[in-house]
Design a protein around this nucleic acid. Sequence first.
DNA 1: CTGGAACCGTACCGTACGGTACGCCAGCGA
DNA 2: TCGCTGGCGTACCGTACGGTACGGTTCCAG
Lengths: 215, 215
Amino acid sequence: MALAIKVNEETFTPRQQAVLTAALDLLVENGDGLTMTAVARRASCSKETLYKWFGDRDGLLTATVQWQAAKVRMPFVDRSHLNVKALRVSLEQFARDLLTTIIGEVSITLNRTAITHAAQEKDSLGNIVLENGPLAIRRRLKPILEAARDARLLRFPSSEEAYRTFFGLVVRDVQIRLLLGDKGLTQSNVEANIEADVKTATDQFLALYGAKASA
Amino acid sequence: MALAIKVNEETFTPRQQAVLTAALDLLVENGDGLTMTAVARRASCSKETLYKWFGDRDGLLTATVQWQAAKVRMPFVDRSHLNVKALRVSLEQFARDLLTTIIGEVSITLNRTAITHAAQEKDSLGNIVLENGPLAIRRRLKPILEAARDARLLRFPSSEEAYRTFFGLVVRDVQIRLLLGDKGLTQSNVEANIEADVKTATDQFLALYGAKASA
DNA sequence: CTGGAACCGTACCGTACGGTACGCCAGCGA
DNA sequence: TCGCTGGCGTACCGTACGGTACGGTTCCAG
């Protein structure tokens, strides 16, 4: 029944979603020391069912990451009436969503899992995370930037450069340090500074690419 | 003979360094599918020797990462006569070193290994990479920034913020995408653009924090 | 020449885990 | 009530790998 293809559809039965939730919880708790036996026990299902539904361990992992990564959805921003004020709000919203996402335990776990996976010629998980992470942001942000440029609110040589600058200004070294387990960077610690960081990043971005200096 | 402590010293015999080189090569090739048997075979030594020298698998891994990470040394920049021109050269040098390091296969492997390790309550490797990576840059860059501020070349509220901005402007989303195995970002592809990226990042940094607009 | 230390190569052990087989029960249509 | 299907629980198998033991070789000191 095309088990390997099943993961491409986003439709999982509630029971299957319960299994995926259990898998994700174990992933967050125990790192990628995820064992089929542990998932089966946690989800109160049999290993045979796991293999029937997901094919093999990789299939389960892929389904879990896929299912969870797809949940990260950035809210759409209003693009109809663009002015300086609205643009700033939109950018701040992007920055806020990006920051809150990457400092979350789920995001850290997913990224770590995908990176571990990528360390062994398996790039499927990495692609999923990429597609739902940085590349999703890029797809969502670029139209805004280009609209703002057309409205003479921003000025940049290429929207690609502008996107990357924005990403860098927002993320800085936070993500890599969290992925590496920097204890000097607690989640709550970063969380408390989100608003300030959001404002700083937005200010800096507008200072670099804004058509007018922001008062 | 204090085997576990041996790794704290940076002194390895040539034979041991050959073993570490073999381990690193395997790490780069096969990801973290590093097995003691493989290292022994590659290094033409016995497993017993590996355990004698490094204690256990983790010890070997730690020694390898430690030894390799310590090799990443940023060249010191001249801080005696600081002017706008010299500052720009220094910043560009930092950016260039940072970028070339990050996109290297060794760096990618080390970061992946440390992140994988960090995914299992083991943060030792993460700390080593952190200490020799982002934090080393910070330690090295901050004095320059502060000297430049004292010389009225830069203006910023805190050197911490300035460092993080610089890091973000230089690294952007390159590192995370490489770690995740983004195939749309080949090493040679990035390499070709290093100089342009270095200049862009430095320009942006100076635009944000420079005391005068750079002509 | 001899004893010992260091080390290579390899066989071996124990365990953990991916994957499979099987017994059992619940629900359900006939 | 009977039989079938789906799924739970568990026992089981094969393998890979961390770690150990041991025989053989080289080299050096005395």
